Simulated assay, not measured.
Amino acid sequence: MDNTPFDKMMQGMAELQESQAKADLESQKLRELAARTSRKLNLVDNIFESIGIKTGCFAEELVSGSFKRNPVLGGTRYDTVECNVPDSNGKTEYDILLFNDSSVAIIEIKYKAHLKDIEDLLEKKAVAFRLSHPECAGHKLYLGLATMISYDELVQKAGEAGIYLPGHEGKYVELLSDKVRAF
């Protein structure tokens, strides 16, 4: 091959094309790796979501079973226990409703309750219940936040808010906070 400027330019073009082909191949490999990684991350995300759902279901089964066997909250016996009750507005679901002639208790169940759950119970669930159940207007309304995992600040805030905090102790649900008031 001659070393004319044209030959050098053609050689440079060939090297550039070879380099571009290698870069394209590497880029394709990276896109395939990104796609496989994305699929695996979606799978992991689905697994964690499934675990979260299952732990939530476990908590609901344990707590609701406990109240079905012994419908007592804070020394008050209830005649009826209803689980997973949708509200008439379709926007709210009550994990557990306990009824007797003079009282109603709403129990929200969380595997691990957070401080925001106290606010939601007070500001959303209690308000929605009162609005959608006028037949219970004369009943005392008690609130509870059942949790499998608790911590000191949660116990303190539940007591300050005046709601029951049933927690898991052995194979039974026991009160972690009983500083309550009717709402």
Rank of each mutant, 00 (worst) to 15 (best):
N84W: 04
T147S: 15
M148P: 01
A126K: 01
K116W: 06
G75Q: 08
D95Q: 01
N89I: 10
A146C: 15
L121T: 00
Y111E: 03
R130I: 14
G144S: 08
K125P: 00
K125D: 00
M148E: 00
G138S: 08
V127I: 11
H139G: 00
Y78S: 02
A113P: 05
E119W: 07
K125S: 05
S132G: 09
I106H: 03
F99E: 02
E108D: 09
V72W: 15
Y111T: 11
E82N: 04
S102C: 03
H139D: 01
H114R: 12
L115T: 08
Y78W: 06
H139I: 01
D95K: 02
A137M: 05
L121Y: 00
E119H: 07
D120N: 13
S102G: 00
K112Q: 15
E135W: 14
D95L: 00
E82P: 00
K116S: 13
K110W: 05
A105D: 11
G144L: 05
T76W: 06
L73H: 13
C83Q: 10
L154R: 13
E108Y: 05
A137L: 07
N89A: 09
C136S: 04
Y94A: 01
S102D: 10
P86L: 05
Y111F: 15
Y142P: 08
L98W: 09
L121C: 01
V72L: 12
D152I: 13
F129T: 12
E108S: 09
N89S: 15
Y142G: 03
A105I: 14
L145R: 08
I149E: 03
G74Y: 13
K110A: 02
A126I: 07
I149W: 01
Y151R: 13
L121S: 01
L122D: 03
N100I: 13
V127L: 03
I149T: 07
I149M: 02
I96K: 06
G90Y: 14
D79W: 06
K112C: 10
P134N: 10
P71G: 04
D79Y: 07
G144H: 09
C83G: 02
L122H: 07
L115V: 11
L131D: 08
K112E: 15
E153S: 13
R130Y: 10
A113L: 06
A105Q: 12
E135S: 15
S102Y: 12
E82R: 12
S150Q: 08
H114G: 05
D101W: 03
